[in-house]
Design a binder for these strands. Structure first.
Lengths: 327, 327
DNA sequence: TTTTTTACTGTTACCGGTAACAAATATTGC
DNA sequence: GCAATATTTGTTACCGGTAACAGTAAAAAA
């Protein structure tokens, strides 16, 4: 910047001003400085700028696993808002571990970010404390909590589970199994299960017919799960899967085994992945507004940072049950 | 850091040393300083540290679209290497646009990253120049180019297309159509197409039976494409899709229409997504080592940064054709 | 004991920008 | 035309660390 300033015959601060707010520099000087910048191929150092201004324009985004398209969609939504405003995304992946999340949060805080976006409302106690005392805006996205750290965008997984279970009961199913995978780690799935159970219990129906599979959700696992559930508890007439991946895997397995869906067993999923709409039979599921959640979370954060007062710090995006042929 | 130093009765630099290399501080002092750090809840400012040391430990990763699981897998691989070594990932999404890629590269360079990972070997002319003159290690991941900017990890899409076409011919198919989507943007898909054409041309078979769909790859689009191709050119006996999403969509559509796969038409895909192995009929495809490519790219970069000399700056990861029931 | 070496700690300057205020120039009003 | 005000530019200090070198204390060698 020194060199640019000298070449243009101005002071450093004038160069700095031109870069950040061209209007604050007179029309006479502008072309001279711009030419100098171009000639020297000058790229301002944002690290230095961040230190001096105490504004890093860094936003860490922490998700459980990028390979799960659900979270990739969220990050994409966040990305689309932030990048256009000059903010940078620091990406972190917890592998569904609260401890890893905690250490990521600590590490990211060292970059003095201006805000932070985390997934869900379940954190380690210490992680939560760190977030609360960090002094920066925090958005918890995806799950809706009863006492968010700060801002919160998402929907109630409990409610979604509850309503889908109610929906299945309405359709006449009476032995409904909830099947998830690693629900001790995937706490949002556990909430859906709890919602499902609550709905079944209310209606006096059996609530413990499902299972918690020991492995991350894959199509294969879904296929194995439905076989296992129907062997153990043949009376099951509907299976509500914690996510579409498992559900689609189950539908495909039923196809291979010649089991009629939904005659022999109805299947419902969660998330609203594209594949659910295309397979045969098409999957009844709960569509979650993933991209929108990411987008809204980022916008909420931007508004806060720009000092725009928010009418609310919690947005319930809701969800949508779509009935297709699998129920 | 000043406060910590005062509290512990040492100088700033001692605190700095303890944090970066505890062994460089005497055993006597260590507990005192550590206690001070804890008591004040001190978090070192990496922005300041980066500026002073000129080592930011920042690595931008630029992909075309995170929502495409192919790239999410790559980023995951990169993440797993970098985070454990204290590096941070700055994420960028180009939407398959070389111009957006260019502007992302420029923007990221302002953070004075220590290296950069980009997708593929196709960049805008200016983007390429910027990368080359940036003075930092660059890894192009996924595609294999004849003249990489710097390091390169991936496989030849042309070769993959070529071999899959050869494979189909060997299986007896003679009217092979290549179907992709937005191949003017997805240049890697275009390379696969070109490889396919080359293989067909060599054998004197028709090479222009396919189509380039006007929209991003979705299951739906794949379904529409196969109908459209078979209507226009009923003689087609095999369709090689640019990716598994399209191919799976086609298989599902054939299922709905009662068209026998592979009797009426054989279908092949590309990437090796899980769903391809599970649907009926299971999809013949080319498996690409996505996670590994990301992992290796990051490791290569780390080695370079740590001064470990590399035996080669180009790694051909290869690919694998898996035959399943759809051909 | 004295000298030399080693291990640790501190001092000073600087990384590359920006904030805050001061100075200079241009514009406006009377 | 001159003071008052607005606009533009510059000066200085500082953001929070680290590099490089200097200094001091402890250990080893003479």
């Amino acid at each position: 910047m020194r060199e640019v300033a000298d070449l243009a015959g101005v002071s450093k601060i004038t160069v700095s001003r031109l870069l950040r707010d061209p209007d604050s520099v007179s029309k006479k000087l502008r072309p001279r400085v711009e030419a100098a910048i171009r000639e020297l191929g000058y790229v301002p150092n944002r690290i230095a700028g961040g230190l001096a201004s105490m504004h890093t324009q860094i936003i860490p985004v922490i998700v459980p696993a990028l390979t799960n398209s659900v979270f990739a969609d969220i990050v994409q939504g966040v990305h689309d808002v932030l990048l256009s405003r000059g903010y940078q995304i620091l990406l972190g992946n917890t592998n569904y571990s609260p401890d890893e999340e905690e250490s990521l949060i600590s590490a990211f805080l060292g970059w003095f970010p201006e805000g932070i976006i985390v997934t869900g409302t379940h954190h380690s106690a210490k992680g939560r404390t760190i977030l609360q005392t960090s002094g920066i805006p925090v958005v918890e996205v995806m799950g809706l909590g009863d006492q968010p750290v700060d801002m919160n965008v998402g929907f109630s997984n409990f409610q979604a589970g509850y309503e889908m279970a109610g929906f299945l009961v309405e359709r006449g199913y009476r032995s409904i199994a909830f099947v998830g995978a690693l629900m001790d780690m995937d706490l949002r799935a556990a909430e859906r299960r709890d919602g499902c159970r609550a709905a079944l219990a209310e209606r006096g129906l059996p609530e413990n017919l499902g299972m918690d599979c020991p492995g991350r959700s894959t199509l294969r696992l879904g296929g194995e799960a439905i076989v296992s559930v129907l062997e153990k508890t043949p009376e099951v007439d509907a299976v509500f899967f914690a996510n579409d991946v498992l559900a689609v895997g189950a539908i495909l397995e039923c196809g291979r085994l010649g089991w009629d869906v939904p005659e022999r067993v109805a299947i419902a999923g969660f998330n609203g992945l594209d594949i659910g709409a295309e397979i045969n039979p098409a999957l009844t599921t709960v569509i979650s507004p993933r991209y929108q959640m990411g987008y809204m979370a980022a916008e909420m954060l931007m508004n806060r940072l720009e000092g725009i007062s928010l009418d609310t710090s919690v947005i319930d995006t809701g969800f949508e049950i779509v009935e297709r042929q699998s129920t």
